[in-house]
Computed example of a mutant assay.
Amino acid sequence: MHDKLEAHAAAGFTTYDTADIYGPSEEILGQFQAAHAARDGPPVQIFTKYVPNIYQQRPTPSSVEAAVRRSCAKLQVPCLDLVQMHWWEYQIPGMVDAGLALADLQAKGLIRFVGTTNMDTAALAALVDAGVDVAVNQVQFSLLDRRPLNGMLQYCGPRGIKLFTYGSVGGGLLSDKYAGPPKATGGLFGMGAPKHAPVDLNTSSLKMYWNVVRKFGGQELWRELLGVLSQVAARHGVSVANVALRWVMQQGDGNTVHPIVGLRGTAHLADNARVLSFSLDQADLAAIDAVLAKSTGPTGDCYSFERGN
């Protein structure tokens, strides 16, 4: 894993996102960062999250500080670059107090920047209004899930709050892998009606993104979108995933939205770099918008249906 992380750093991808609930990821990144610094490589940033189990215990200033210090120890740093707070249930009190506790730790030098994750617009505004200097909100945002356009982007842009976005290629559902034409199946000599290969939902994240596809308009509209993305990609000499990422990046003022791309290996490293080599023009956006106009969802604010809203 360290070799893969080092390869990304050498290619200019020097920021990594993790969380205190992602198994041993903080320890792995801490070991990598220490070894990377010893090699005198380009500076790297590691962003983490604070995800308290609010169903078992309400956070206090001391428990928030203890969690931050645990992340510092695992990442082997005296100060965390960014801590993004997640709050599972808004009906459970204490969210603003926990945000203010993070702000206090920022003032003490334990945190450089405070952020949030999966906050809807009202929750984010409550934290900002209380005096928490929120730098970023991490949310799901893609061509399939455009809920950040329902108020979040409009709130964040003028205030200089960045949006880090996950799911921007839908776990691979918005990629060349699924963009090919249907193949003939069944019948004599395989001459039956053309069909696409079934989607193998072999991970929990793919199942989550497939649920988004269903809310977007179902498999046929998803396939129609892939067809248009393929045409746009061909015009620019890039991949379908490049186009999907570029669309997200160009929303708002073009400087607010920053997608996070999954890192399992180095196979997509060069392809990911191509996202920075082109822009979608008005003809590209119009072709994509024609498909998006047929979409039925998801509706509501960020992380709305996941919270049961």
Rank of each mutant, 00 (worst) to 15 (best):
M208N: 05
A244G: 02
M95W: 10
R58L: 12
S239V: 10
F141N: 02
K207Y: 01
G186C: 02
A35E: 02
K294N: 08
A130Q: 08
L229M: 12
M95C: 14
Y50P: 02
I260M: 05
I28F: 09
P298M: 09
Q45W: 04
S142P: 12
T203I: 03
Q219F: 07
L201W: 11
G252W: 04
R235S: 07
D281Y: 05
D284Y: 05
R69D: 12
F305N: 13
G187W: 05
V68A: 08
L174F: 09
G131I: 03
L144W: 02
S277Q: 13
Q57C: 03
Q138F: 11
I54R: 06
S204W: 10
L100T: 04
E89T: 09
L276F: 15
R69G: 11
L100V: 04
V213T: 07
G262W: 05
G171F: 07
L276N: 12
I21A: 05
L82Q: 11
K108A: 15
A283N: 04
L173Y: 10
G170V: 13
T116A: 08
R159P: 00
A130K: 10
V238I: 11
L143R: 02
D200G: 00
Y209S: 13
L280R: 03
A283M: 02
R264G: 01
V169C: 07
K294M: 08
E220M: 09
V257P: 01
Q45Y: 06
Y22C: 08
T48R: 09
T165Y: 06
A122W: 02
S304E: 13
R146W: 01
N242E: 04
N118L: 09
L269G: 03
Y50E: 01
L229W: 10
F189Y: 12
R69K: 10
K207V: 11
K108I: 04
